[in-house]
């Protein structure tokens, strides 16, 4: 807590500045759309709605991905499951190479269109880096440390909570941060299946050839990714006591 108060600027000031920059940008483009076509798309009401839909998609997908990815990653490192761990890791790596648009299109066919399909596809896509990093983080701990812990008479639960997890925080957090950035970007694709979000702006701008609409969607999506990544970076730093953002 002390650290948070001491570094209030890092915790609140920087995100606030980023949010103010985004707000200034939105105010500027709404007042200077440069044409009737863009003006119809770029109203405060529309932009806020798309932003809200985007944040909504990203948060639900990421929340669920964290909730499943971290425990699943931990489970795969348990001695009994260690053998399939390698297999799952490979499947996960291959899965990450499937284009995000293809995943959305695939689940559209089975789940229909709309918000739920969007969240499901994003969730699947975000789970991969989280699960992989959790698995890799725990696996990369030197066996000697675990042996020493065993020698001290620690049981497996204690080893997990006192040795394995604390030592792999940075890697796990890095996985979550990767997932955040991927998720914010991929969520722009959800527009194709009617799930809304900032992709609405980007694709609309593309189809009527109005750069300012595309720019607004892209800028807000990028800012969202930067802000979320920054905040998670602060959390990571707080946990490990290391300065990761500088």
């Amino acid at each position: 807590m002390q650290m948070i108060i001491k570094n209030w600027f890092r915790w609140l000031g920087v995100p606030l500045i980023l949010i103010l920059i985004s707000a200034a940008f939105v105010i500027y483009v709404v007042n200077n759309p440069g044409g009737a076509m863009a003006a119809r798309s770029l109203t405060y009401q529309n932009v806020l709605r798309y932003l809200r839909e985007h944040v909504h998609l990203v948060f639900v997908a990421l929340g669920l991905a964290t909730a499943v990815g971290v425990p699943a990653g931990i489970l795969l490192t348990r001695p009994k499951l260690r053998r399939i761990g390698k297999v799952v890791e490979n499947i996960v790596n291959v899965g990450q190479t499937i284009p995000s648009l293809a995943i959305l299109a695939l689940f559209y066919v089975y789940l229909g269109l709309g918000f739920r399909t969007g969240v499901f596809a994003l969730w699947l896509y975000c789970i991969l880096p989280i699960l992989r990093n959790t698995y890799a983080g725990i696996k990369s701990i030197e066996p000697g440390i675990i042996e020493a812990a065993l020698g001290m008479g620690m049981n497996p639960v204690k080893i997990l909570t006192r040795i394995e997890l604390p030592l792999s925080y940075p890697v796990i957090m890095a996985g979550i941060r990767t997932a955040v950035v991927i998720c914010v970007g991929t969520a722009t694709m959800a527009t194709f299946i009617g799930a809304g979000g900032l992709g609405d702006l980007i694709v609309t701008g593309l189809s009527v050839r109005r750069t300012i609409i595309i720019l607004t969607g892209a800028f807000l999506s990028a800012m969202l990714a930067i802000i979320l990544d920054y905040i998670l970076g602060q959390v990571e730093q707080y946990l490990t006591g290391r300065d990761v953002n500088s």
Binding site: R52, V55, L57, F59, G63, V119
Partner: peptide
């Protein structure tokens, strides 16, 4: 994190 992410979303 999970709660914040999910709860924020489930409202609307």
């Amino acid at each position: 994190l999970f709660m914040a992410f999910s709860l924020f979303g489930c409202g609307n």
